[in-house]
């Protein structure tokens, strides 16, 4: 079965033998975009988080067939037009990653949250960011999220 969608601004299609199989594999292996990670395959850890029509979606539990005609963004497409996305920039500024494996999922979840809550409180962050990081980079992530929110704010002013 052939599924067509827009991913990171480009029209693509991918062939899967079962439309119910996870979109994650179509992205990672079908389109060779490896930034979206497999962690649990059960929508628990959040490493596979992407955006589908602007909303955070855990792609390991999202049937490929439902991607038909949708607008998808992965970590590779978060920064656009040669400009580093504020969340990614904040992550760099705060030197967040350790092993780095879970980070794309967190970055995508954060970007989705900041779209809807531009200035999150600590409590908002605690409630909204529920991915799993084993290295324990949460402490720096929180700082990076606040920093990204500020950077977003500055962009708006300009």
């Amino acid at each position: 079965m052939k599924i067509s969608f827009t991913i990171n601004g480009e029209a693509k299609s991918v062939e899967v033998s079962d439309g119910n199989s996870p979109l994650l594999w179509a992205i990672r292996d079908g389109l060779d975009l490896k930034g979206t990670k497999f962690g649990c395959g059960k929508a628990a850890c959040g490493a596979c988080t992407i955006h589908v029509d602007g909303n955070a979606v855990r792609s390991c539990s999202f049937p490929a067939k439902l991607a038909e005609g949708k607008e998808i963004t992965t970590i590779e497409g978060l920064s656009k037009d040669g400009k580093t996305h504020p969340v990614q920039q904040a992550w760099i500024d705060e030197v967040v990653p350790q092993c780095g494996y879970c980070q794309p999922g967190f970055i995508m979840a954060t970007a989705a949250m900041l779209d809807k809550i531009p200035n999150p409180t600590d409590e908002d962050i605690d409630k909204n960011i529920i991915n799993v990081c084993r290295c324990g980079t949460y402490y720096r992530m929180r700082k990076a999220i606040h920093r990204a929110a500020k950077m977003n704010g500055n962009t708006d002013v300009q």
């Binding site: 119910n20 996870p22 395959g41 929508a43 855990r58 539990s61 439902l66 949250m113 809550i117």
Partner: peptide, 20 residues
Amino acid sequence: LAGYTCNTCHTDENNDYSGV
């Protein structure tokens, strides 16, 4: 919530691969 909705993990149908 904003960072995740029910639909972040749950779609319109059961997913046998993930068990969600």
